[in-house]
Simulated scan of single mutants.
Amino acid sequence: MGRVIRSFKQTVELKEVVQYLKCLANKLSKEFPNLRWYLFGSLLRQEALPSDVDLLIIYQCGVDTGKLRTKLSAMCLRLPIDLLLLREDEESELSFIAEQSAMCIFPL
């Protein structure tokens, strides 16, 4: 699991985070089509003081995950992101989305 860590300086609303990440997903979808973005973890559970934003991106074989991680890190300066990248077959095997009650934020 890769981390793009920045500390929260203020309270972050789930709605604002979702909107911000949808915008990023939309921009990256031109270069990286067919990605599915999910939120999970403490922010989604609306715990009092989440330390980061847990983001899962499901991708297909052939995606340059290093390039994706670098682009996302450069674009996502407002949030401390804990990024998990899983191939579609890995997610199917692990059932991570169901286990974590993850919420799909892109595409809708």
Rank of each mutant, 00 (worst) to 15 (best):
M1W: 07
R3C: 04
R3T: 10
I5R: 15
R6S: 09
R6T: 08
S7T: 07
T11V: 09
L14M: 13
E16P: 04
E16K: 14
V17I: 10
V18R: 15
Y20Q: 05
L21T: 03
L21F: 12
K22R: 15
C23I: 09
L24P: 03
K27H: 06
K27N: 07
K27A: 04
K30Y: 05
E31H: 13
F32Q: 01
N34I: 03
N34R: 10
N34A: 14
L35P: 08
L35K: 07
Y38K: 15
L39N: 08
L39E: 05
F40E: 10
G41Y: 07
G41Q: 04
G41M: 05
S42Y: 03
L43Y: 07
L44H: 08
L44K: 04
L44E: 00
E47Y: 06
L49F: 14
S51G: 14
S51P: 00
V53S: 01
C61F: 13
V63C: 08
D64G: 01
K67A: 04
L68V: 04
L68R: 06
L68A: 02
R69K: 11
R69E: 14
R69V: 10
T70C: 05
T70K: 13
K71C: 03
L72V: 02
S73N: 12
A74T: 10
A74Q: 15
M75N: 11
L77C: 04
L79T: 03
P80C: 03
P80H: 02
D82M: 02
L84Y: 03
L85S: 01
L85A: 02
L86Y: 02
E91C: 03
S92A: 12
S92W: 05
L94I: 07
F96A: 11
F96H: 09
I97G: 03
A98P: 00
A98G: 03
Q100G: 02
Q100D: 06
Q100C: 06
S101Q: 11
A102P: 00
M103E: 10
C104V: 11
I105V: 12
P107C: 06
